[in-house]
Amino acid sequence: MQPSSPSLRRRVVIAAGLLLFVVPFLTGCLRVQASMGISSDDRVSGQIVAATIPADENDAGPQLTVPSSLAGKVRVQEYTQDGYVGSQVFFSDLTFGDVQQLSTLSDQSAGMFQLNLQRAGDLVGLTGRVDLESAPEQGTDVQFTIAFPARVATTNGTRESDSIVTWKLPAGEVSTLRAEVRYSDPNTRGFAGWAGIVAGVTLAVALLIAALAWLNRNPAPPRRSAQAGDNP
């Protein structure tokens, strides 16, 4: 039995609508670029771009919002470049704990992006997980770059220099990020400076006590009067 003409037209319209939805994801429309730097006092600054090629003139691309917990440290603005539209995020003076909250910039990306920075003594470790299994394999551009304040000891990323590592994350896969670097704990540095001052004062007091003890170790006998032993 042949479908009626209205039914056929309806199916064609539905198929066309689905095609318009899928085509942007098949033609390389996804761009996610994140870069950040860590200072020697364990503060993190950087930016994130999340954009797609718009499906129509009303498509503004991914819209990221700042969680209230990061207000004052994160700023979001519109991104328009190379035919892509979306959001650009700037952040500064984040703590390691704040960095974990960057994944909450978008409800849609919850669970797709996880990043963790931890310190154990002088060792700082970065671990991350990025789930791009649902991303289009053709044309997806997802990159993450991080600059450390010291030479990177180990990593599974690409070394751009002694202290900079980049990961280019493939679509259709779940990727892990890993890097370790050693530099002194800023809290320990402050304590070491104070400890040095205390040690210096203690040493000065000890030297003073030692000097007084040395001066008094053999007290000089009382001087006899020049007339004491003479006869009249």
Results as ranks from 00 to 15, higher is better:
Asn216Ala: 14
Phe25His: 14
Thr166Trp: 05
Arg182Leu: 10
Asp122Trp: 12
Leu105Cys: 06
Ser40Lys: 03
Gly229Arg: 14
Glu133Ala: 15
Leu126Gly: 04
Gln108His: 08
Val201Pro: 10
Thr95Asn: 02
Ser68Met: 09
Ala226Pro: 12
Glu180Trp: 04
Arg159Leu: 15
Gly72Ala: 09
Ala55Glu: 05
Ala204Tyr: 04
Trp194Lys: 01
Gly157Trp: 12
Gln118Asp: 08
Gly17Phe: 14
Pro221Asp: 01
Ser163His: 05
Arg189Ser: 09
Pro186Val: 02
Val99Tyr: 04
Ala55Trp: 09
Ser7Gln: 12
Ile53Thr: 10
Gln47Asn: 15
Gly200Ser: 11
Ser175His: 03
Glu133His: 11
Arg9Ile: 13
Arg189Asn: 05
Asp107Tyr: 08
Gln63Gly: 13
Thr52Asp: 11
Val23Asn: 06
Pro24Val: 00
Leu105Trp: 04
Ala34Asn: 11
Gln81Cys: 13
Ile53Arg: 15
Leu30Ser: 04
Ala135Leu: 04
Gln138Trp: 09
Gln138Arg: 13
Val152Ile: 10
Ile146Met: 15
Lys168Leu: 15
Ser69Gly: 08
Val130Arg: 01
Thr188Glu: 09
Leu26Val: 11
Trp214His: 07
Val130Tyr: 10
Ala206Gly: 14
Pro170Gln: 03
Ala150Val: 04
Ala34His: 12
Leu105Tyr: 04
Tyr183Glu: 01
Ala226Met: 02
Arg189Tyr: 06
Tyr79Ile: 04
Phe21His: 13
